[in-house]
Design a protein around this nucleic acid. Structure first.
Lengths: 329, 329
DNA sequence: TTGTACGCGTTATCAT
DNA sequence: ATGATAACGCGTACAA
């Protein structure tokens, strides 16, 4: 059988104006060879790879779920995601960005590494109108579309809850100072204390690496002070777990002596003893939303204005912050 | 300034035979426009995308770490990974495979979904000598390169340990029957019982979905029987956690009344109360090894023979299986 | 209804 | 030392 390549192309893309027999023959042949049109050649012509680049700092529970959200929407929209981990390293984030650009991904979804102080590599792309959506860990001075949690509200919910439980000396395990989430949650923390007329003590705000062991030693330090806190609010569950280990080691009663609230509501938290309260956010929705916004932006003829979507957190109250007296409420 | 595209190409690829001044001029111009050679066009010519496709059933802790291993080696070798999640669905695994093939990835790293009973889509590719490396969840009847844990040995270690702790009626939470890991670990389980002259009771081998809640109800069922087990060996930590929840709910003393051992050694396990013993494997090494083997295969001119690499597990003993009497050993 | 020819951006080969 | 051109595989506009 002899047909020209254009006929084949027509058949494979369900174009009209092709003889039924010819169509059958071509389809059979394609099936037999299981022929796949070459996406690369097509991309060269259309200048679209139908691929989107994702850069996340790591694949812990939160980012795993977020990536699933991205992947989910990408599949629906006919895109495939190239996922890179920066491993919280600035250098690696740069390399990942370059690689993805070389692969001509149609757009980028980024959550910034904790080691990244300079975001010029993203600024340059944005200036060229290259579509990028940031999520969760967003650069504060980046003019771009962003999806993030209302971190101020989340922290406020946690701290309000602790105050209602009778806590007055609430420590904040803040994590790395450069991250937007640390900063925003600090605002929620201080705002709430102020609202309740509780003095803000600098010594109760502790910065550290984003690491359980650091949180562990910071907590031991907090506990060794003459005037120890009666509650700990951790910027993330990873740090909250470190704090809990320290509390248990020192035989501090949780929540009676020190109450504890984390952030992210990883599944682990309800399995700990005591189960740990946490501010919950839907990583899946965040990922999906980020992907959605990116694809909108990429599909649009005109350059869309930057948007910031804020998702609402919920507080999951568990034993680690529910003091006996109020448990009956 | 006027130079031909060939000259530009030569400069950018550090070819000799180009005038120093011309070179400078071109480099400057490239810098100014921050010009990036189009990888897509190159791929069209060379038929290599320097991209490798990864299909994992999910991104739980084990696979997250494995993916990090893959990503790590890929970066070193100049590859970028396209990571897809099948979400334990056969249909989605098929779609992912097709998408990746359409994107012309140079090779595939796959861990099979628990819902996949038919692996023809992979067989067809293998027949065409398309490079695929399977890891962890490998199809038993697939002629391909594989990286996996010595699951028989891992299960044997766990069961031997339980027997040494005085357990005689050891239940096996087996997970889905079609998965190679379930089957291999079953062999380790039965072999060890046989070796110690302990009768194998079919009722103690419980199949279920790969899901914590299923493990929970299976365990409740096990406990409600007149002749309850004195130990539980779970095919994965996820199931072990479900079992632990059931044991705690029924106020069964762990390990005194029922000892418990899981598989994977997720970080969570040491944080539970009691801390749960588990068979540990290095997901990172597994991912790296898989990527290594794939890249070797892709780079080789000739078709390399299929290999099977088996990694060794270690047993991490914790309170959930250390009975008081032997704790002093 | 079907076939031909061009262009996408790159590299390799050959010509200048 | 530099420029011109074919080829990679596709879709598309146009010719037959």
């Amino acid at each position: 059988m002899n047909v020209s390549i254009s006929t084949v192309s027509r058949v494979l893309r369900d174009m009209p104006d092709v003889n039924a027999e010819t169509r059958q023959a071509v389809l059979q042949m394609a099936e037999k060879l299981d022929y796949q049109p070459n996406q690369v050649a097509l991309s060269l012509v259309t200048k679209r790879t139908h691929t989107l680049g994702v850069i996340v700092p790591n694949l812990d529970h939160f980012f795993s779920v977020a990536v699933r959200g991205i992947d989910d929407l990408a599949l629906e929209a006919g895109y495939t995601a190239m996922i890179c981990q920066s491993n919280e390293s600035y250098a690696r984030e740069m390399v990942n960005t370059q690689r993805l650009m070389k692969s001509r991904v149609d757009g980028l979804i980024v959550s910034i590494s904790s080691d990244t102080f300079n975001v010029d590599h993203f600024k340059r792309l944005l200036q060229k109108n290259y579509p990028i959506v940031f999520f969760d860990r967003v650069g504060s001075d980046l003019a771009a579309t962003k999806v993030l949690l209302d971190n101020v509200a989340g922290a406020a919910m946690a701290v309000t809850h602790l105050i209602e439980q009778g806590c007055r000396r609430i420590a904040y395990l803040a994590g790395p100072a450069n991250l937007s989430i640390s900063q925003q949650r600090l605002i929620g923390y201080t705002d709430t204390l102020r609202k309740y007329g509780i003095p803000i003590e600098e010594e109760l705000i502790v910065y550290s690496e984003f690491d359980r062991d650091y949180a562990y030693s910071c907590t031991l330090d907090l506990l060794s002070r003459p005037n120890r806190p009666d509650a700990i609010f951790a910027v993330s569950d990873r740090l909250a777990v470190g704090a809990l280990l320290a509390l248990k080691e020192k035989n501090v009663q949780v929540p009676e002596e020190v109450a504890l609230v984390g952030f992210n509501d990883e599944p682990l938290m309800r399995l700990l003893t005591p189960a740990v309260s946490s501010v919950a956010q839907s990583a899946f929705d965040m990922g999906r939303t980020a992907a959605q916004l990116l694809i909108e932006q990429m599909s649009s003829e005109t350059t869309l204005p930057h948007r910031t979507v804020m998702l609402k957190p919920t507080l999951i109250k568990r034993d680690s912050s529910l003091r006996k007296k109020t448990e009956t409420t």
